[in-house]
């Protein structure tokens, strides 16, 4: 594993820690999109189907378990926890996320590395992850007061994607036959979705003003 990949996994983990900190400690999910969180839970469930069948490494297994457990517990907190759920900004989190699922599934049936259940589910999870941030970005645009933890959560998620691209570039030059169009194209699309957010996040940090996205 190269440094970019490890740094990518760590920023991904950090984003989850930041979100859990906000939800578990501050008991607030204000500014967080339940739609995006539900999509992530579905992404991890579909991608990690092989968790107990196909062993890669202890690191891999532990990280998969962490992402599965955290994504489902975040959804549980936002839906069921009696204090946290009251802070959920339901009225502004209106993105029709169900309409992302079917096109991603159709695309996975058409474009996959092998036409097997596991590979189709894997491709589906890659496509769905690429667009899963959309409800969160829409909610941020509608949020007048984006708190620091919410901004940091999305920033770390975006950083994780940038680092994964650097990891692929590194692997392309160091590993023979490392060509993976599905994850690369979907990963680049996913990263581009953060471009606008990154711009305003860095500007707000540079000018030391509160983060706000233009509607």
């Amino acid at each position: 594993m190269n440094a970019f990949r490890l740094a990518g996994d760590m920023t991904h983990l950090l984003s989850v820690v930041v979100l859990l900190l906000k939800i578990h400690t501050i008991k607030s999910c204000a500014g967080i999109s339940l739609k995006t969180q539900e999509l992530y839970a579905l992404v991890f469930a579909a991608r990690y189907l092989d968790l107990f069948i196909h062993f890669i490494s202890l690191y891999n297994t532990v990280m998969k378990l962490v992402f599965l457990a955290s994504s489902f517990s975040i959804v549980w907190y936002m839906r069921r926890h009696k204090i946290v759920r009251r802070t959920y900004d339901k009225d502004h989190d209106t993105f029709r996320h169900h309409f992302l699922v079917l096109p991603c599934l159709a695309l996975a049936l058409l474009i996959n590395e092998r036409f097997t259940f596991r590979e189709v589910m894997w491709a589906f999870s890659i496509y769905l992850e690429a667009v899963a941030i959309l409800p969160q970005l829409v909610l941020l645009q509608r949020t007048r007061n984006i708190d620091n933890l919410t901004g940091q959560y999305v920033f770390f998620l975006g950083a994780y994607r940038v680092l994964y691209i650097l990891n692929w570039i590194y692997r392309y030059f160091t590993e023979p036959h490392f060509v993976h169009w599905i994850s690369w194209v979907a990963g680049i699309v996913q990263t581009l979705l953060y471009a606008d957010f990154f711009y305003y996040y860095i500007m707000s940090w540079k000018n030391n003003v509160k983060l706000e996205l233009p509607a």
């Binding site: 990949r5 996994d9 991608r47 092989d50 890669i56 490494s57 891999n60 994964y164 036959h177 993976h180």
Partner: peptide, 10 residues
Amino acid sequence: SSNQRDHDEL
């Protein structure tokens, strides 16, 4: 692309 079978990335 055969090593993708292992899906070693998260």
